[in-house]
Design a protein around this nucleic acid. Sequence first.
DNA 1: ATAGGGTTAG
Length: 800
Amino acid sequence: MAMLSALTFFSNYTIQQNISLVNTKATKNHEPRTLPKSSRTDKYNRQSIDVNVSDARKNHLLTESLISYVNYGDMDNALYLFEGMSKSDTFVWNVLIRGLTDNGFFREAVDLYYRMCFSGVRADKFTFPFVIKACGELCDLREGEKVHAKVYKVGLDFDVYICNALICMYAKVGDIECAERVFSKMQRRDLVSWNSMISAYAIIGDGWSSLLCIKKMQSVGIGHDKFTVLSSLKACSLLCSLIIGKEIHGQVIKSTFRSDVVVQTSLIDMYGKCGQVQYAQNLFNWIPQMSVITWNAMIGCYALNLHPLESFTCIRNMQASGLVHPDKITLINLLPSCAQVGALIPAKSIHGFAVRREFLPHLVLETTLVDMYGKLQELRLAKQVFDQMNMKNLISWNAIIAAYVQNGQSRQALKLFSDLINNHCVPDASTISSILPAYSDIASLREGKQIHGYNIKKEFSANNFITNSIIYMYARCGDLLIAQQIFDRMYNKDVISWNTIIMAYGIHGFGKESLKLFCRMRENDIEPNASTFISVLSSCSIAGLDEEGWKYFHLMKWEYGIDPQIEHYGSMLDLLGRKGDLEKAKKFIDEMSLPPTARIWGSLLSASRQHGNIELAEVAANHILSSAHDNTGCYILLSNMYAKAGRWEDVERIKGLMSEKGLAKTTGCSDIEINYKTIRFVNHDRSHLKTDKIYDVLAILLRWIGEELFVGLSKFNPVDLVRTRLNSPKCHSIRLAISYGLISVSVGKPIVIKKNVRICSDCHDAAKKISDITNREIVVGDSKIYHHFKDGKCSCKDYW
DNA sequence: ATAGGGTTAG
């Protein structure tokens, strides 16, 4: 008896002493944890227990103590106690495995189960649910299957509790077929079994199956409870089905759990996901008591529905309430709002808050930070967070790749993409849709085909977004024919597919084809949107279809009620510029309903260059240079105009301005792909193995087209001649590539060349003539459009 | 004496 009181005292003592070391909050739904290696001290002197107490009695008392520790979440001491006990009793093992699972020590729970097996202690129907749950939490399908096999072997595969646990486990690892198989083989199903299956469909994102399962459950006469409601609300969120959501809300109001905070939170979440901020807010305002999760759901609702300021107000109110504190998920939900308002300083302070609160490292939070910095155009910070992550998954990789693509770093994005594959990650549809624009940008047909092949293998072609991107990619890589074929084979073309194919023909200068496609699109009852008209109008402007361009510009407004955006205005301005009426063009800019952007001034600059109006070019250039836009091209264009006019002081002035801003002239180069290899030429390149032959061909070509390779122009004075010769267009990369193409590409096939900057007018002229005298089609993709040179003409009709 | 299903996240 004395010993008993000693034990009681001891228990109380340790529990009180340990209270700060122990998890006193809810003991469920932890993130996975690991036990510290023997952090326990020896101040708990348990040896005193053994005197005068029978073994059975002793074990009983120890077990009670063990349960106390487990229920307090003090697994460290629970394990210590366990090691000192007789381990023949299944019950003790079960208590400890439950404790580990409940407290988030999933790997340890599974390990302890194996130790139990090896110790020869039989696992019973109580053991398996905990172990199976731990496997599910670990997302370890192989481990889960092993335990399932054992369940089957010991004949417990008809136990309702175990089967229910198996359904949940299979759902968590994403194996819905296995979950369904367990469910269908059950001889007896209770409400929990049905709820588990309903929730399983919701977990894998199959809202319809989830709702259908509820119907089926009702048809066999089983009523619902709040767990059913929670899953059904999740299904509504997945389906964005406000109608069903409201119906369930109605049922909730009539039910006994209408004031349950979990159900209320779920309703707020559902309204948020269905885009109904007002409904969510009304609920939130009247909710009797809120948990941190309720606040998080409301903040997430605002962020999701692009109400960034409200989400900031919400977190301020949350902190002012003093009842709950922001947690990791609060920040995860809040961060997109920073990107939405372009607010770097709040973003950084939230990041700092996370660091101070020791929320990091945390996979999801870090990934959100990467995503947000990417959207705020802070690539350096995005990369910094990404590099510091000690755990990365596919979603984090997708975030950093998207950040690079969105910020125009296509080459680097592709490098990361190959890093991801070398890291044994398997890209998903999201990775592919992020990376495809980068492939379009680098416009390498060889690499483009590789990624296309990968998509076919992975069966991503069912995804419209991806297929549309692939169509665009082929067009940008110069292979309009494949683009067309893929488009033709799509069986569910959406408006974006049509916009893409119209644009594809547009950038290749086949404006008439674009307009035919627009008509076909209308015949197919696809309603055009603003982007459709960007495709149509830019096709018209690239091909110089003046009359048609204006017709569609007016049609867009008056028949389809679409107000012109800056891109639409830009295309119309290109058409005006082409005609050379620069005054009219200037007037058009003044009369636009939108403030002009760099795109608009760029258009005016091109027109001024084409018609040799330096004064207007300077006006346009000054506007571009005063914006934060990347304006390297603008400097170069202006500098070339000055050079052409012999204004060398101004050329030097521009050069000075560029070096002041740290801008370097982009080295122009021309790529040609021969036999799955990309050959790159720069101006005056002599690095190719066949250099002598290439220059021989070039010399012949130039003689044919009436230029001489080694004779300078005579209309400049000697000093200018030297300057001019330094950058003589006669040996520009494009001509070297054409010469090489003529001796490498089989006769009859077009010579396709990609250029990283716009083609100069001398080379444009030369290419036309070469196409004529050699009777070859030459296709040159520059940084904006494709030029198809054939029979001495170019598809751009000499305006670009 | 120990069981199973639940709300917010990139």
